[in-house]
Protein backbone atom coordinates (compact mmCIF):
# COMPACT_ATOMS: atom_id res chain seq x y z
CA UNK A 1 0.00 0.00 0.00
CA UNK A 2 2.77 2.41 0.98
CA UNK A 3 4.62 1.47 -2.20
CA UNK A 4 1.71 2.72 -4.22
CA UNK A 5 1.55 5.94 -2.26
CA UNK A 6 5.24 6.47 -2.89
CA UNK A 7 4.69 5.93 -6.63
CA UNK A 8 2.25 8.81 -6.58
CA UNK A 9 4.35 11.16 -4.46
CA UNK A 10 5.61 14.42 -5.87
CA UNK A 11 9.34 14.41 -6.29
CA UNK A 12 12.16 12.45 -7.90
CA UNK A 13 10.97 8.90 -7.16
CA UNK A 14 7.26 9.54 -7.44
CA UNK A 15 5.11 10.20 -10.49
CA UNK A 16 2.62 12.55 -8.87
CA UNK A 17 4.05 15.73 -10.34
CA UNK A 18 4.46 14.30 -13.85
CA UNK A 19 0.89 13.05 -13.90
CA UNK A 20 -0.41 16.31 -12.45
CA UNK A 21 1.37 18.21 -15.20
CA UNK A 22 -0.17 15.90 -17.79
CA UNK A 23 -3.61 16.41 -16.27
CA UNK A 24 -3.10 20.17 -16.44
CA UNK A 25 -2.18 19.93 -20.12
CA UNK A 26 -5.30 17.85 -20.79
CA UNK A 27 -7.46 20.56 -19.24
CA UNK A 28 -5.57 23.26 -21.10
CA UNK A 29 -6.09 21.45 -24.40
CA UNK A 30 -9.80 21.02 -23.76
CA UNK A 31 -10.26 24.63 -22.65
CA UNK A 32 -8.39 26.02 -25.68
CA UNK A 33 -10.33 23.75 -28.04
CA UNK A 34 -13.72 24.70 -26.61
CA UNK A 35 -13.99 28.27 -28.01
CA UNK A 36 -12.45 27.15 -31.33
CA UNK A 37 -14.97 24.34 -31.71
CA UNK A 38 -17.95 26.41 -30.61
CA UNK A 39 -16.98 29.20 -33.00
CA UNK A 40 -16.79 26.71 -35.87
CA UNK A 41 -20.05 25.17 -34.72
CA UNK A 42 -21.81 28.52 -34.59
CA UNK A 43 -20.58 29.42 -38.06
CA UNK A 44 -21.71 26.10 -39.50
CA UNK A 45 -25.04 26.33 -37.68
CA UNK A 46 -25.69 29.77 -39.16
CA UNK A 47 -24.70 28.40 -42.57
CA UNK A 48 -27.27 25.63 -42.16
CA UNK A 49 -29.86 28.29 -41.43
CA UNK A 50 -28.85 30.23 -44.54
CA UNK A 51 -31.20 30.86 -47.45
CA UNK A 52 -28.64 29.84 -50.06
CA UNK A 53 -28.88 26.17 -50.97
CA UNK A 54 -25.17 25.90 -51.77
CA UNK A 55 -24.11 27.24 -48.36
CA UNK A 56 -26.55 24.88 -46.68
CA UNK A 57 -25.16 21.93 -48.60
CA UNK A 58 -21.58 22.80 -47.70
CA UNK A 59 -22.47 23.09 -44.03
CA UNK A 60 -24.26 19.74 -44.09
CA UNK A 61 -21.34 18.10 -45.88
CA UNK A 62 -18.98 19.44 -43.22
CA UNK A 63 -21.09 17.95 -40.45
CA UNK A 64 -21.46 14.61 -42.21
CA UNK A 65 -17.72 14.27 -42.75
CA UNK A 66 -16.44 15.30 -39.35
CA UNK A 67 -19.15 13.49 -37.44
CA UNK A 68 -18.53 10.33 -39.44
CA UNK A 69 -14.74 10.14 -39.30
CA UNK A 70 -13.05 8.55 -36.31
CA UNK A 71 -11.48 11.28 -34.17
CA UNK A 72 -8.17 9.45 -34.39
CA UNK A 73 -8.25 9.61 -38.20
CA UNK A 74 -9.07 13.32 -38.16
CA UNK A 75 -6.15 13.87 -35.84
CA UNK A 76 -3.73 12.02 -38.12
CA UNK A 77 -4.99 13.79 -41.21
CA UNK A 78 -4.61 17.19 -39.58
CA UNK A 79 -1.21 16.39 -38.09
CA UNK A 80 0.52 14.62 -41.00
CA UNK A 81 -1.49 16.32 -43.72
CA UNK A 82 -0.89 19.74 -42.19
CA UNK A 83 2.80 19.00 -41.98
CA UNK A 84 3.01 17.97 -45.64
CA UNK A 85 0.86 20.82 -46.86
CA UNK A 86 2.83 23.46 -44.98
CA UNK A 87 6.13 21.93 -46.06
CA UNK A 88 5.01 22.07 -49.66
CA UNK A 89 3.82 25.65 -49.26
CA UNK A 90 7.07 26.68 -47.59
CA UNK A 91 8.98 24.90 -50.34
CA UNK A 92 7.50 27.36 -52.82
CA UNK A 93 9.28 30.20 -51.08
CA UNK A 94 12.39 28.61 -49.61
CA UNK A 95 14.20 25.70 -51.29
CA UNK A 96 14.09 22.55 -49.16
CA UNK A 97 12.32 24.12 -46.22
CA UNK A 98 10.61 21.73 -43.84
CA UNK A 99 7.89 22.66 -41.41
CA UNK A 100 7.16 20.99 -38.10
CA UNK A 101 3.57 21.27 -36.99
CA UNK A 102 3.24 21.89 -33.29
CA UNK A 103 1.40 18.89 -31.83
CA UNK A 104 -0.66 21.00 -29.48
CA UNK A 105 -1.91 23.14 -32.35
CA UNK A 106 -2.67 20.04 -34.42
CA UNK A 107 -4.61 18.64 -31.46
CA UNK A 108 -6.61 21.85 -31.04
CA UNK A 109 -7.40 22.05 -34.77
CA UNK A 110 -8.44 18.39 -35.08
CA UNK A 111 -10.54 18.34 -31.91
CA UNK A 112 -11.95 21.75 -32.82
CA UNK A 113 -13.10 20.48 -36.22
CA UNK A 114 -14.84 17.53 -34.57
CA UNK A 115 -16.39 19.64 -31.83
CA UNK A 116 -17.49 22.13 -34.50
CA UNK A 117 -19.39 19.40 -36.35
CA UNK A 118 -21.15 18.10 -33.23
CA UNK A 119 -21.91 21.48 -31.69
CA UNK A 120 -23.25 22.83 -34.99
CA UNK A 121 -26.10 20.31 -34.75
CA UNK A 122 -26.90 21.41 -31.22
CA UNK A 123 -26.67 25.10 -32.07
CA UNK A 124 -28.72 24.71 -35.25
CA UNK A 125 -31.52 23.06 -33.29
CA UNK A 126 -31.28 25.89 -30.76
CA UNK A 127 -31.44 28.58 -33.44
CA UNK A 128 -34.56 26.98 -34.82
CA UNK A 129 -36.10 26.86 -31.35
CA UNK A 130 -36.15 30.66 -31.17
CA UNK A 131 -39.52 31.63 -32.68
CA UNK A 132 -39.34 33.39 -36.04
CA UNK A 133 -41.57 36.18 -34.74
CA UNK A 134 -38.80 37.29 -32.39
CA UNK A 135 -36.42 37.91 -35.25
CA UNK A 136 -39.13 39.57 -37.32
CA UNK A 137 -40.11 41.83 -34.43
CA UNK A 138 -36.48 42.81 -33.88
CA UNK A 139 -36.08 43.53 -37.59
CA UNK A 140 -39.28 45.58 -37.51
CA UNK A 141 -37.73 47.67 -34.73
CA UNK A 142 -34.96 48.51 -37.19
CA UNK A 143 -32.19 46.37 -35.70
CA UNK A 144 -29.45 45.29 -38.07
CA UNK A 145 -28.97 41.59 -38.77
CA UNK A 146 -25.90 41.43 -36.52
CA UNK A 147 -27.72 43.09 -33.64
CA UNK A 148 -30.75 40.85 -34.04
CA UNK A 149 -28.47 37.89 -33.58
CA UNK A 150 -26.47 39.40 -30.73
CA UNK A 151 -29.35 40.88 -28.73
CA UNK A 152 -32.32 38.67 -29.50
CA UNK A 153 -31.42 35.25 -30.88
CA UNK A 154 -28.16 34.56 -29.05
CA UNK A 155 -29.29 35.06 -25.41
CA UNK A 156 -32.25 32.74 -25.97
CA UNK A 157 -30.20 30.22 -27.87
CA UNK A 158 -28.02 29.47 -24.85
CA UNK A 159 -30.79 28.07 -22.72
CA UNK A 160 -31.75 25.54 -25.35
CA UNK A 161 -28.20 24.73 -26.43
CA UNK A 162 -26.57 24.27 -23.02
CA UNK A 163 -27.57 20.65 -22.31
CA UNK A 164 -26.34 19.59 -25.76
CA UNK A 165 -23.15 21.59 -25.47
CA UNK A 166 -22.48 20.11 -22.05
CA UNK A 167 -22.67 16.71 -23.72
CA UNK A 168 -20.24 17.88 -26.42
CA UNK A 169 -17.84 19.09 -23.76
CA UNK A 170 -17.86 15.72 -21.99
CA UNK A 171 -17.05 13.98 -25.27
CA UNK A 172 -14.29 16.51 -25.98
CA UNK A 173 -12.76 15.96 -22.56
CA UNK A 174 -12.49 12.23 -23.23
CA UNK A 175 -11.34 12.70 -26.82
CA UNK A 176 -8.35 14.73 -25.67
CA UNK A 177 -6.81 11.44 -24.55
CA UNK A 178 -6.30 10.60 -28.25
CA UNK A 179 -3.69 13.34 -28.72
CA UNK A 180 -1.28 11.27 -26.63
CA UNK A 181 -0.88 9.18 -29.80
CA UNK A 182 0.88 12.08 -31.55
CA UNK A 183 3.18 12.53 -28.54
CA UNK A 184 1.60 15.41 -26.64
CA UNK A 185 2.48 14.98 -22.96
CA UNK A 186 -1.11 15.01 -21.76
CA UNK A 187 -2.46 12.94 -18.88
CA UNK A 188 -2.60 9.77 -20.96
CA UNK A 189 0.95 10.04 -22.24
CA UNK A 190 2.46 10.95 -18.88
CA UNK A 191 0.70 7.91 -17.46
CA UNK A 192 2.14 5.75 -20.22
CA UNK A 193 5.63 7.02 -19.39
CA UNK A 194 5.11 6.23 -15.72
CA UNK A 195 3.94 2.75 -16.71
CA UNK A 196 6.99 2.24 -18.90
CA UNK A 197 9.33 2.93 -16.01
CA UNK A 198 7.49 1.39 -13.06
CA UNK A 199 5.84 -1.60 -14.81
CA UNK A 200 2.62 -0.92 -12.93
CA UNK A 201 0.13 -0.51 -15.80
CA UNK A 202 -3.02 -1.47 -13.91
CA UNK A 203 -2.41 0.93 -11.05
CA UNK A 204 -1.43 3.91 -13.16
CA UNK A 205 -4.11 3.54 -15.82
CA UNK A 206 -6.67 3.18 -13.06
CA UNK A 207 -5.40 6.44 -11.55
CA UNK A 208 -5.65 8.10 -14.97
CA UNK A 209 -9.23 6.85 -15.32
CA UNK A 210 -10.10 8.22 -11.89
CA UNK A 211 -8.64 11.63 -12.79
CA UNK A 212 -10.77 11.74 -15.96
CA UNK A 213 -13.74 10.72 -13.84
CA UNK A 214 -13.11 13.63 -11.46
CA UNK A 215 -12.92 16.01 -14.43
CA UNK A 216 -16.24 14.70 -15.73
CA UNK A 217 -17.86 15.05 -12.32
CA UNK A 218 -16.64 18.64 -11.90
CA UNK A 219 -17.80 19.49 -15.43
CA UNK A 220 -21.27 18.16 -14.90
CA UNK A 221 -21.55 20.14 -11.64
CA UNK A 222 -20.46 23.32 -13.42
CA UNK A 223 -22.83 22.73 -16.30
CA UNK A 224 -25.83 22.11 -14.10
CA UNK A 225 -25.17 25.49 -12.42
CA UNK A 226 -24.85 27.16 -15.82
CA UNK A 227 -28.08 25.55 -16.93
CA UNK A 228 -29.83 26.75 -13.82
CA UNK A 229 -28.57 30.25 -14.55
CA UNK A 230 -29.44 30.20 -18.23
CA UNK A 231 -33.01 29.16 -17.53
CA UNK A 232 -33.61 31.43 -14.52
CA UNK A 233 -36.29 33.32 -16.43
CA UNK A 234 -38.03 30.13 -17.41
CA UNK A 235 -40.28 28.06 -15.16
CA UNK A 236 -40.66 24.41 -15.82
CA UNK A 237 -43.47 22.01 -15.11
CA UNK A 238 -42.95 20.63 -11.61
CA UNK A 239 -39.93 22.86 -11.11
CA UNK A 240 -39.69 25.90 -8.92
Amino acid sequence: MFDFLRLLSFGPDGWGDEIARGALLTIELALVTLPVGIAIGLGVALAKDSKSAAVKMLANAYTTVFRGLPELLTLFIVYYGGQMLLTRLAGLFVEGASVEVNQFVAGVVALGLVLGAFSSEVLYAAIRAVPRGQKEAAAALGLSKMRVFRLVTFPQLWRVALPGLSNNWMVLLKDTSLVSVIAISDLMRQTAIAVGVTKQPFFFYLIACLIYLVFSAISSAVFSRLEARASRGFRRVGGH
Binding site: K174, D175, T176, S177, L178, S180, M188, T191, A192, V195, K199, Q200, P201, F202, Y205, L206, A208, C209, Y212, L213, S216, A217
Partner: peptide
Protein backbone atom coordinates in the same frame (compact mmCIF):
# COMPACT_ATOMS: atom_id res chain seq x y z
CA UNK B 1 -20.71 6.06 -14.58
CA UNK B 2 -17.16 4.72 -14.68
CA UNK B 3 -17.30 3.56 -18.27
CA UNK B 4 -19.07 6.67 -19.53
CA UNK B 5 -16.88 9.08 -17.62
CA UNK B 6 -13.48 7.82 -18.74
CA UNK B 7 -11.91 7.76 -22.21
CA UNK B 8 -12.14 4.51 -24.14
CA UNK B 9 -8.41 4.76 -24.83
CA UNK B 10 -7.65 4.71 -21.10
CA UNK B 11 -9.99 1.74 -20.60
CA UNK B 12 -8.33 -0.12 -23.45
CA UNK B 13 -4.87 0.45 -21.97
CA UNK B 14 -6.13 -0.53 -18.55
CA UNK B 15 -7.34 -3.88 -19.85
CA UNK B 16 -4.61 -4.66 -22.38
CA UNK B 17 -1.52 -3.55 -20.45
CA UNK B 18 -3.10 -4.08 -17.04
CA UNK B 19 -3.81 -7.73 -17.86
CA UNK B 20 -0.11 -8.27 -18.57
CA UNK B 21 0.59 -7.46 -14.95
CA UNK B 22 -1.65 -10.31 -13.77
Amino acid sequence: YFFRGTPLLAQTFLVYYGAGQF
